[in-house]
């Protein structure tokens, strides 16, 4: 390759950062085509009745040209109001949601912290540890080796042989978190997962996230809790209506975000 590493967009430290880029998001657009049923909200629609079918496909432009570069050992908070495109951006980074325009390159395939969808409620916790581990790409032998740790971390050893449908929502969330973090992640995306469980579990899970980051990882944390963003992140992306509004050091961005919300 010719030339020095060029300075990608959105680097808060300016040009000349020598760290290794791990995720490069380049002018990414995501559009959904959704079959809309029912009446579209709008001010001048008095002439139409509610039951009249006014469907058709509608294009939702969820991301409108987002660009930034994440470096190794970055821990990046992603903030914005509901529906601003945070989760869409994260799913695009993992490759689960295809981009309409633009491209995303990464050093290794980023993974989302979450395994809930792979689990089966009618099966015991033990079976679900195996199933969830396999779904994450672990081998059977690796799961056996980590089984005790997973059960210990979840703190539900007494109930591990009972069907998961009998667990409380807190217990289920703890088990899911324990399974999901059993794998080593190089680039990890955590979408609101830290708000589960009781106080003690929350602290343990935040510690676990920091552990992952310190182990040469890059972490994206999507959260509405400015406290956990301030505690864990060194850089923050603020997204609003599909546009990257601000990208910079945590305190700077969070302050600006909070100010924008307090003055409507």
């Amino acid at each position: 390759m010719a030339g020095p590493t060029e300075s990608p967009l959105g680097d808060p430290r300016g040009a000349g950062d020598a760290r290794r880029p791990v995720v490069v998001v380049d002018d990414v657009h995501v559009e959904y085509k959704v079959l809309s049923t029912g009446k579209r909200a709008g001010p001048a629609e008095t002439g139409r009745r509610l039951l009249q079918r006014s469907g058709g496909t509608r294009t939702v432009h969820a991301l409108k040209g987002v660009s930034f570069t994440a470096y190794e050992n970055d821990s990046i908070g992603v903030i914005g109001s509901n529906g601003s495109g945070k989760s869409t951006l994260m799913r695009a980074i993992t490759g689960l949601t295809p981009t309409s325009r633009g491209s995303i390159h990464a050093a290794s395939r980023p993974s989302m912290l979450g395994v809930g969808a792979a689990l089966i409620k009618d099966l015991s916790g033990e079976r679900n540890v195996i199933l969830g581990g396999l779904a994450l790409g672990l081998s059977r032998a690796e799961i056996e080796a980590k089984y005790e740790d997973i059960v210990d971390f979840s703190g539900i050893r007494d109930f591990i042989d009972l069907p998961m449908r009998t667990y409380s929502s807190g217990m289920t969330a703890r088990l899911k978190f324990a399974i999901a973090t059993a794998r080593d992640h190089e680039i990890l995306i955590v979408d609101e997962a830290l708000a589960v469980g009781d106080q003690a579990f929350r602290q343990r899970s935040e510690a676990r996230i920091r552990e992952i980051r310190d182990g040469a990882g890059t972490v994206f944390l999507v959260s509405h809790s400015m406290r956990s963003i301030r505690d864990t992140c060194n850089r923050v992306l603020w997204i609003d209506r599909g546009v990257l509004v601000m990208d910079g050091a945590t305190d700077e961005v969070v302050d600006a975000y909070e100010q924008s919300r307090s003055t409507p």
Binding site: P8, L9, S103, A106
Partner: peptide
């Protein structure tokens, strides 16, 4: 690679990175 633009990082400009989500 010769293709270089100012505001974007063409795929080939970042060594060691691969495109995410490609088939």
């Amino acid at each position: 690679m010769s293709r270089q633009r100012v505001n974007t990082s063409p795929p080939s400009a970042v060594p060691g990175l691969t495109k995410v989500g490609g088939r």
